[in-house]
Computed example of a mutant assay.
Amino acid sequence: MSERLKALADAGVSIWLDDLSRERIETGNLAELVAEKSVVGVTTNPTIFAGAISNGERYDEQVRALVADGADVDKVIFELTTDDVRKACDILAPVAQRTADDGRVSIEVEPTLANDTDATIASAKALWAAVDRPNALIKIPATVEGLPAITAVIAEGISVNVTLIFSTERYQAVMDAYLAGLEQAQANGVDLTTIRSVASFFVSRVDTEIDARLEKIGSDAALALQGKAAVANARLAYTAFQDVVASERWQALAAVGAHVQRPLWASTGVKNPAYPDTLYVTDLVVADTVNTMPEKTMDAFADHGELAGDQVTGRADDAQALFDQLTAVGIDLDDVFTVLETEGVDKFKASWIELLETVKGQMS
Score class of each variant (00 low, 15 high):
81 T>I: 06
81 T>D: 14
83 D>M: 11
83 D>Q: 07
84 D>W: 10
84 D>M: 08
85 V>M: 05
86 R>S: 12
86 R>I: 03
87 K>S: 10
87 K>H: 06
87 K>P: 02
87 K>Y: 08
88 A>P: 03
89 C>N: 05
89 C>T: 06
90 D>E: 14
90 D>Q: 11
90 D>L: 09
90 D>P: 05
91 I>Y: 07
91 I>R: 08
91 I>L: 11
92 L>W: 05
92 L>D: 06
94 P>M: 04
94 P>R: 04
95 V>S: 06
97 Q>W: 02
98 R>F: 03
98 R>P: 07
98 R>V: 12
99 T>L: 01
100 A>H: 08
101 D>F: 07
101 D>I: 10
101 D>C: 08
102 D>P: 10
105 V>D: 02
105 V>M: 06
105 V>N: 02
106 S>T: 14
106 S>W: 00
106 S>N: 10
108 E>I: 11
109 V>C: 12
109 V>T: 11
110 E>I: 13
110 E>N: 14
111 P>D: 06
112 T>K: 15
113 L>D: 00
113 L>A: 10
113 L>N: 02
114 A>E: 00
114 A>I: 11
114 A>D: 01
114 A>H: 05
115 N>E: 15
115 N>V: 13
116 D>E: 12
116 D>M: 09
116 D>I: 08
117 T>W: 03
120 T>Y: 04
121 I>N: 00
121 I>T: 03
123 S>W: 02
123 S>F: 05
124 A>G: 10
126 A>E: 10
127 L>N: 01
128 W>S: 11
129 A>I: 01
130 A>Y: 01
131 V>E: 00
131 V>L: 03
132 D>S: 10
133 R>N: 07
134 P>Q: 01
134 P>A: 04
138 I>K: 01
138 I>S: 04
138 I>W: 00
140 I>C: 04
140 I>A: 04
140 I>N: 01
141 P>E: 06
141 P>S: 10
141 P>D: 11
143 T>I: 12
143 T>F: 01
145 E>S: 15
145 E>V: 13
145 E>Y: 07
146 G>H: 02
146 G>V: 12
147 L>Q: 06
147 L>S: 07
147 L>M: 15
148 P>G: 06
148 P>I: 08
149 A>G: 05
149 A>W: 00
149 A>L: 05
150 I>C: 09
150 I>F: 02
151 T>W: 02
152 A>W: 00
